[in-house]
Write a protein that binds this DNA or RNA. Structure first.
Length: 644
DNA sequence: CATGGTCGCGAG
DNA sequence: CTCGCGAC
């Protein structure tokens, strides 16, 4: 494609949901974000909304401390499973000693959001439950072409978005790459708007030439804002950013690098030669550091929305008998089997391996573990071990029982596992379903006429992304030096950095404390019930979202075809037309994508069994749950969550 | 005193 | 495949 100038650099976006877990609860419970709210897990807060932060409530605070700081705060406990956790009336009946948390609620919302991202960009990498990287290079180049052809408003003219330049730095409108970034910013703004209108979640974003910069940028203007890093601003930005806040340098490596170099800001590392860095931190890490502090990073956005593994874990007060271990194991396996089933339907794949990890107390251990002088911790009071086995039956719909027996068999074979304080199970190494007769795949395939070849949700993974572990970074010098526009100087912006939003790391929640009586799920819902919902067996998120510009028919010069509806539009109408889609046609598209998320949520409520029947039945094997099966009519995210 | 619970990656 | 790190 004509992109002789887009080749100057990539347009990378880092999209970050603001205090995600809190937002999910706000939407689910219909609580306005103006009320201070936090999500708790046992006695600690794992997410705090912006209103509550004003009172000084922070992530990690104890609930009592939170209430002292902010008496009016609403606390919502994450969903828990196990030990008849039902009825948590007035109080909080979340028994840490008998339940485990479930993050499914947040995963569901996460995938719904990712689906929208995917609808706006063909290259989306789900980086975590609430973050994604997008490569908008192509889309931005295309928009630039439109602008040049006079078919769209100039990219520098985007007043409707909350686009912001990095502190004091004005984007250079004569710089082709800056224009590409601006185009990306416009597209990003539209995408964020879609997420907010369709699901009710606000997103912050950073738009830059690579992942490292985009990530730093997204945190600059936190709640619900986006920040662009113009070509000339990256250098100054790194002058203000603490080294430790660069992705990958927040832990031990960063600590080591700082103490070794005395660098405070990221750019301070520029004073060291590449050899110096390599000599001290190894080839990969050294070369990566050398480049990163210069605002260079060529790590590709790896198109991928699917999780690579599914894991469940639980830490508990040490148990010494296998009986107790079995109980925890059952709980873990119950959740894992359900998640495997959901994953299977969502991605048409099966996990083939199971890894059991356990932490056991060492022989002569004390109930104490203190570590001073943070060199390297691990007071040897416990050991962690893991063992991997094949999932029986090739991973075809493993039942809770089968997982339990497998896991317990492994556990039993492990010596000194006994005083056990933590168990973790991971299902991984996925592969396609065996399309034999009897399989769901063939079942679905049999009904309608030959369904179109399962459209590849994601574009094929282009290149193995390199990561830096505790050791080093894979430089892949190839295109490293060649392409990278962002090394210049320019203006910078203060980088408050403060507390990030985000989720602690877990994901699902259930119990609610605050407004116990508020099934007010569809508060904002304009009840735009949709009718046209036809099921598509396996076309999930990406499927529908991907671009399929297959046959570009000849258009009159200056005219463009709307990628959404195919309509041919006049030059200046295109942008408006696209915005229009987001503001309106979105409901339609979302309806489709929503199916997946809602579907997942619905399934989560069924107990295992998961009959190979077509659709899941109401009141899935669970007795207590008052799961009123709702026939889903057009629904919004609210509907994913059970009202009560 | 101590946040868990999930994820992904790379070194060994 | 196992272990540890880093991040959310």
């Amino acid at each position: 494609m004509l992109r002789s100038h887009a080749v100057h650099g990539r347009v990378i976006v880092h999209a970050d949901l603001d205090c995600f877990y809190c937002q999910v609860e706000h939407v689910r419970l219909g609580i306005p974000t103006s009320v201070p709210l936090a999500v708790q897990q046992w006695d600690g807060l794992i997410a705090v909304n912006y209103e509550a932060r004003k009172s000084g409530v922070k992530r990690g605070d104890r609930t009592t401390a939170a209430k002292q700081k902010c008496p009016q705060i609403t606390l919502v406990h994450v969903e828990t499973i196990g030990a008849d956790d039902e009825l948590d009336d007035a109080g909080t009946r979340h028994d840490k000693g008998a339940c485990k948390v479930s993050l499914e609620r947040y995963r569901t919302a996460s995938f719904a959001i990712m689906a929208i991202f995917q609808a706006h960009c063909r290259r989306v990498e789900r980086a975590s439950i609430d973050e994604a990287y997008l490569d908008l290079t192509e889309e931005a180049a295309k928009l630039c072409q439109e602008v040049e052809a006079g078919n769209a408003r100039d990219v520098a003219d985007s007043p409707e978005t909350d686009l912001q330049g990095t502190a004091g730095h004005r984007v250079d409108p004569t710089n082709a790459f800056d224009r590409a970034l601006l185009a990306g910013a416009r597209l990003t703004a539209a995408m964020r708007l879609a997420v907010e209108q369709e699901l009710g979640f606000t997103v912050s974003a950073g738009i830059a030439s690579n992942k490292v910069l985009a990530k730093l940028a997204s945190s600059i203007n936190k709640p619900n804002k986006q920040t662009v890093v113009p070509a000339g601003a990256s250098s100054d930005m790194l002058d203000t950013v603490p080294l430790r806040s660069v992705r990958g340098l927040g832990g031990k490596l960063g600590e080591t690098v700082v103490s070794w170099s005395k660098a405070e800001k990221a750019s301070d590392l520029k004073r060291f030669s590449q050899q110096d860095l390599v000599g001290n931190f190894g080839t990969k890490t050294g070369e990566w550091l050398w480049r990163a502090c210069r605002g260079m990073d060529d790590e590709p956005v790896a198109p991928n929305l699917k999780p690579k593994s599914l894991s469940v874990c639980k830490s508990f007060t040490p148990v010494r008998d296998e009986e107790s271990v079995l109980n925890w194991m059952r709980l873990l396996c119950t959740e894992l089997s359900q998640r495997i089933a959901v994953d299977r339907e969502a991605w048409s794949r099966r996990a083939t391996k199971l890894t059991l990890q356990m932490i056991s107390l060492k022989p002569g251990s004390r109930a104490n573990q203190r570590d001073a002088g943070g060199g390297n911790g691990k007071s040897n009071t416990s050991t962690t071990r893991s063992r991997t086995v094949d999932i029986p039956g090739g991973g075809e719909s493993p039942t809770t029982a089968s997982l339990v027996s497998e896991a317990m068999a492994v556990f039993a074979k492990t010596d000194n596992a006994l005083p056990c304080s933590r168990l973790a199970l991971t299902a991984h190494e996925f592969c396609g379903l065996i399309s034999g007769r009897g399989s769901i795949a063939s079942f679905l395939r049999a009904l309608p006429p030959p369904p179109p070849p399962p459209q590849q949700p994601m574009p094929p993974p282009t290149s193995p992304l390199e990561k830096w572990g505790s050791k080093g970074v894979k430089p892949d010098a190839k295109q490293a030096l060649a392409v990278d526009p962002s090394g210049q100087a320019g203006g910078g912006r203060s980088l408050p950095e403060g507390d990030d939003e985000d989720v602690p790391g877990t994901e699902t929640a259930e119990a609610s404390i605050g407004p116990r009586d508020v099934p007010r799920v569809g508060s904002k819902d304009d009840s735009r019930v949709d009718r046209s919902r036809n099921f598509q067996p396996s076309s999930h998120l990406a499927g529908a979202a991907c671009d399929e510009r297959t046959a570009p028919s000849p258009l009159r010069p200056g005219y463009e075809r709307c990628p959404k509806c195919g309509k041919v539009l006049a030059p200046e109408d295109l942008q408006e037309h696209l915005d229009f889609h987001y503001a309106e046609g979105l409901q339609e598209r979302y309806t489709r994508e929503g199916d997946v998320a809602r579907d997942m949520a619905a399934r989560m409520s069924d107990r295992e069994g998961l009959p190979k029947r077509k659709i899941q039945e109401a009141g899935g094997g669970k007795r207590a749950k008052s799961q009123t099966k709702r026939p889903a009519a057009g629904l919004r995210i609210d509907s994913f969550f059970k009202p009560t």
